Simulated scan of single mutants.
Amino acid sequence: MSEDYGKRIKRAANLMSRSMDVYAAQYGLTGTQMSIIDYLGESQDHTQRDIEMEFDIRPSTTTKILQRMEAGGLVAAKRDPRDGRQRIIAPTAKARGLQTAVRSYIDDQQTAMERRFDRHDLAAFDRVLAYFIALNSDDSSQSGKESRS
């Protein structure tokens, strides 16, 4: 009997999200907000579209998340002078103050994987995930391609 890979990936993603939410709650954040704070880092150059692409989030969902983060004083948004349709999203001082805690959680998760599995296992895992992502992406031209990185 073969494994239902999709079900296992979904379960792993759900458990990871729940764990991240529990950790984030002590800082008044959600796991998604934590991920966005980490992604923004110290940069002032990320657009809302960059966030949508990085996390594969729909524009309407991204707008809601960023509106909540803006209301919570975590990000500031301004129109992109190069493209008025885009907004540049920057972390506030409050978000930058949380970056150490955010990065610590992410680093701990990464370290746990690296302690348990050798680099060959992790490379194979990465290839499997990359293939599964391509298989299920909106870009149907990628769905039949295998990643060989």
Rank of each mutant, 00 (worst) to 15 (best):
S2L: 12
S2Y: 15
D4I: 12
Y5G: 01
Y5L: 06
G6Q: 03
K7F: 06
R8S: 14
I9P: 01
I9K: 02
I9T: 02
I9W: 02
R11C: 02
A12D: 11
A12F: 15
A13I: 07
N14M: 01
L15H: 00
M16K: 09
M16F: 08
M16Y: 07
M16A: 07
S17P: 02
R18S: 06
R18W: 06
R18H: 07
S19P: 01
V22W: 05
A24K: 03
A24N: 09
A24L: 05
A24T: 05
A25H: 01
Q26V: 12
G28K: 03
G31E: 01
G31I: 03
T32Q: 15
M34V: 01
M34R: 05
M34I: 04
I36M: 11
I37H: 01
I37T: 01
D38C: 14
Y39A: 14
L40S: 13
G41N: 09
E42F: 08
S43D: 04
H46F: 13
T47A: 15
Q48Y: 00
Q48N: 05
R49M: 01
I51E: 07
I51M: 05
E52T: 15
F55M: 05
F55L: 03
I57Y: 09
R58Q: 12
P59R: 02
S60C: 14
T63C: 07
I65H: 00
Q67R: 05
R68A: 08
M69K: 07
E70S: 05
A71W: 14
A71E: 12
G72I: 13
G73S: 10
V75Y: 02
A76P: 00
A77Q: 11
K78G: 15
R79M: 03
P81Q: 10
P81R: 11
P81H: 08
P81G: 13
R82D: 13
D83L: 10
G84E: 15
I89F: 04
P91Y: 02
A93V: 07
K94Y: 03
K94A: 07
A95F: 05
Q99L: 14
T100F: 04
V102C: 13
I106W: 06
I106D: 07
I106C: 10
Q109H: 05
Q110I: 13
Q110K: 11
T111M: 15
T111G: 10
A112T: 13
E114H: 10
R116S: 04
F117H: 08
R119P: 00
D121I: 02
L122C: 08
A123T: 12
F125W: 01
D126G: 07
D126M: 04
R127H: 09
R127S: 15
R127A: 14
V128A: 02
L129I: 12
A130I: 09
I133Q: 09
I133N: 12
A134F: 13
L135C: 04
N136P: 05
S137N: 13
D138C: 04
D138L: 11
S140D: 10
S140E: 14
S143Q: 13
S143F: 02
K145L: 11
K145N: 09
E146W: 02
E146C: 01
S147C: 14
R148M: 03
S149L: 12
